[in-house]
Simulated scan of single mutants.
Amino acid sequence: MIDRPNAAAAQAAGPLVDTFGRAVSYLRVSVTDRCDFRCVYCMSEHMTFLPKPELLSLEELDRLCSAFVMRGVRKLRFTGGEPLVRRDVMTLFRALSRHLERGRLDEVTLTTNGSQLARYAADLAACGVRRVNVSLDTLNAAKFRAVTRWGDLDRVLAGIAAAKAAGLHVKINAVALKGVNAHEISSLMEWAHGEGHDLSLIEVMPLGDTGEDRLDQYVPLTTVRAELAERYTLTESSHRTGGPARYVDVKETGGRLGFITPLTHNFCEGCNRVRVTCTGTLFMCLGQEDAADLRAPLRASTDDALLHAAIDAAILRKPKGHDFVIDRTHRQPALQRHMSATGG
């Protein structure tokens, strides 16, 4: 791929700082809205996906990411859908590894369902990826199939093992689901820590119509933490990964446990993140509809000046926080778009 950072334009524009003084240093990029699973909290079973011509090409994604890197973004996370089902996606990882080599980036990583990790773990490590987040809500094979609708637990576990063998640090992400896995959190944590993996728990987010009632799914992590504290010694940790998780150290397992709490305690005050979809739409907040089209300026010129102007205008509209609520009067999704369309 051609390196087109347009350094002069980027340096003239300066770092990305919103009106609340928060510096944007973390970009999450969805490379596809497609996935080989249909998780009950993320998608409906019968999804309609975007026509492929609407997606940014891998070359365009490289150019877009590079523009953000030149403006002070230090961390890139690739998401989907499932990022590893995007055809030739490793081309993008290889191209962006140049920013790691030149010291412009601290980290390139991804969030994955693990289904393709056995195939790609070694290649990801060769491209400079050092960490991956793997979504895994249960170790019960039948329940895993029910939650993901299409997933194969053994395949995911093989992918996690391949990632570990390739030297990647694995963090397990689990969405806490009432009546599904809430009672399994301790066993999932002990397994993850026993394998040398951190575990982060996530509250259900009210995005998109999945065919499920969010109130029926929702478990406040304040409740989960209180229950765990009756059995384990949890000590506040200073560990940070640049994302929204807040960690505790678990004395009995020797591992770390993270809590991502968009509902019971939002993490907006220190938000350093923006998200770009696979169509080039920039969302300044996961929980708001306001967005900016970056595809048009990206395609309007090979010069990045228009792109930087569009990014600047968008960052100035980054809101103070989101408005997620799940209760008996807010049972419908807060936003109509699915998590898979935004990139978690």
Rank of each mutant, 00 (worst) to 15 (best):
P5Q: 09
N6P: 00
N6Q: 05
L16E: 04
T19D: 07
T32R: 00
D33C: 02
F37H: 14
R38A: 15
C42S: 10
F49P: 07
L55P: 03
A67W: 03
R74W: 02
F78A: 03
V85I: 15
D88Y: 02
L92N: 02
L92P: 04
F93S: 01
R94A: 14
A95K: 06
R98W: 05
R98K: 12
G103V: 06
R104E: 14
V108T: 14
L117A: 13
A122L: 09
D123L: 11
L124A: 07
V129M: 04
A141E: 13
R149Q: 13
A161D: 15
A162Y: 11
A165I: 06
A166N: 08
I172G: 01
N173H: 07
V175Y: 08
G179R: 11
A182G: 05
G196N: 12
D198F: 09
E203R: 10
L207N: 05
G211A: 11
Q217F: 12
V219R: 13
A226W: 04
E230H: 12
S237C: 08
A245Y: 04
V250W: 12
K251W: 02
K251A: 15
I260F: 10
R273G: 11
T279A: 10
T281S: 06
L282Y: 09
M284P: 04
C285Y: 07
A296C: 02
D303Y: 03
A305V: 15
A314N: 08
D323S: 13
R331V: 04
A334I: 00
L335M: 13
R337C: 06
